[in-house]
Design a protein around this nucleic acid. Structure first.
Lengths: 79, 79
DNA sequence: ATTAATTGTTTTGTTTAAGCAATATTTAAT
DNA sequence: ATTAAATATTGCTTAAACAAAACAATTAAT
């Protein structure tokens, strides 16, 4: 199983699935399936998604669950 | 079409397809198909491959062709 | 308040492509 | 030439991706 933060970054940017889908030439339904983890996209798909968010694929997809973003804010940082 | 440098990094490490396949629980034939670009792997596959090479997915896969590694050596670097 | 109209999400087929297993072919070494 | 190792091909199974339709939820307008 592969984890992702598509829904997080999509909503953060105020995009609907359709809007996001149009940006990267993908089906809005497919985005739905991805967001609820029904399947793991092709790396091509993943690259297009990461591009549109200006992220690396590794920031968007992971084999291990992502920590909550709130724990990554400055008050929690070690260094 | 998605480009990758699997063959490059695999041979650089002196691994056969079978050896690489065993490391990440994948079919050697599948690696063959990936190396000659017959298809684009799932992002799960891509993450496992990147892990074994200690690379990011973006260093291993790209929507645009990769520049020859020889052009990235220090003598060519700008900064 | 009810109905329409619009927008967003989910479900259900169907098609296409990824991945596997087995086999064939090539390459390398003796 | 023969064997072994590496790579390529073929056929099949499963999962990704799409298209169409169903299902909310919101807003508009009467």
């Amino acid at each position: 199983m592969v984890h992702n933060r598509i829904a997080l970054f999509r909503t953060e940017r105020g995009l609907s699935r359709k809007e996001l889908a149009d940006l990267i030439d993908l089906n809005p339904q497919t985005i739905g399936f991805l967001e609820r983890g029904s399947y793991s996209p092709s790396v091509e798909c993943a690259l297009r998604l990461a591009n549109v968010f200006n992220l690396s694929v590794d920031d968007l997809f992971s084999l291990k669950p992502f920590p909550a973003l709130s724990t990554q804010l400055s008050v929690h940082k070690k260094s």
